[in-house]
Amino acid sequence: MLYLVCYDVADPKKLRRIHKMTAAYAVGGQKSFYECWMTESELRQLNRQIEDEIDLETDRAHMFSLDPRSSPFLFGVASRQSINPFMVI
């Protein structure tokens, strides 16, 4: 599934750790918003990892499932992300 993962974290060290966790699944994104292809298991794992890192009083994180069949609205220099199959060995 395709998900939009976004977060706002106050502590710079936690922000870097969450960025590394999220970037492992990202196929595109900018700053703290990332499109991520993940299985349900990977989503649960990332959810737990982020939940362990954030401060519930000052930080926030959101994960939205996206329909990969829908067409995005693109503005400015935006371009559609490639979703061609890939394999990491």
Rank of each mutant, 00 (worst) to 15 (best):
M1D: 02
M1Y: 00
L2I: 09
L2W: 12
Y3M: 02
Y3R: 04
L4V: 07
C6R: 09
C6L: 15
Y7K: 04
D8Y: 04
V9F: 07
V9H: 05
A10M: 08
A10K: 11
D11L: 01
P12V: 11
K13R: 14
K14R: 15
R16A: 15
R16P: 01
R16E: 14
R17C: 04
R17M: 11
I18S: 02
H19N: 06
H19A: 14
H19Q: 08
K20L: 08
T22G: 02
A23G: 01
A24Y: 12
Y25G: 03
A26N: 06
A26G: 03
G29F: 10
G29V: 06
K31H: 13
K31W: 13
S32K: 08
F33N: 06
F33C: 02
Y34S: 07
Y34P: 01
E35H: 07
C36F: 03
C36E: 04
W37S: 03
W37T: 01
W37P: 01
M38I: 07
T39Y: 06
T39H: 03
E40G: 14
L43Q: 09
R44S: 12
L46G: 04
N47V: 02
R48A: 10
R48V: 02
R48S: 05
Q49L: 09
I50Q: 00
E51C: 05
E51Y: 06
I54C: 05
I54R: 05
D55H: 10
D55I: 00
L56H: 14
E57N: 08
T58E: 15
T58L: 14
T58R: 15
D59F: 13
D59W: 13
R60M: 03
A61K: 07
H62A: 07
H62Y: 11
M63L: 13
F64A: 01
S65E: 11
L66A: 13
L66T: 09
D67T: 07
D67H: 11
D67Q: 10
P68Q: 01
P68Y: 06
R69N: 05
R69W: 01
R69C: 04
S70Y: 08
S70H: 06
S71L: 11
P72V: 05
P72C: 06
P72W: 08
F73R: 07
F73C: 04
F73D: 00
L74G: 00
L74K: 05
F75K: 00
G76K: 08
A78I: 02
S79K: 13
R80K: 14
R80F: 03
I83Y: 08
I83N: 05
N84E: 13
P85K: 13
P85D: 11
M87S: 10
M87L: 08
M87P: 00
V88S: 11
V88L: 11
V88D: 06
I89W: 13
I89S: 10
I89H: 09
